[in-house]
Amino acid sequence: RTIVASNNDYIRARTKGLYQDDARAAVRVSHANKSVARYYREFGGEPLGHLSHELLHTSYINRTKGLVS
């Protein structure tokens, strides 16, 4: 066991680290992020709004047809 590393051991350790970051956060929901709200107020408008579509959304490509690069 000591010489054989287990994938899941380090995955679980890192996973726990991120849940710890969440558990100790003062704010735990995205819609209450005051700086995100400020971004929308000062610049971005609103979710799914005009500027959001321009800067924060994208479209995808059918890559099965043979693109030329």
């Binding site: 996973t15 969440d22 558990a23 956060a25 971004y39």
Partner: peptide, 18 residues
């Protein structure tokens, strides 16, 4: 800056299910 402010919801994005 405000671009470093985040919530617990943003933090868990790196986990499956987050």
């Amino acid at each position: 800056t405000l671009l470093a402010d985040y919530t617990g919801a943003g933090a868990i994005f790196g986990n499956t299910g987050g």
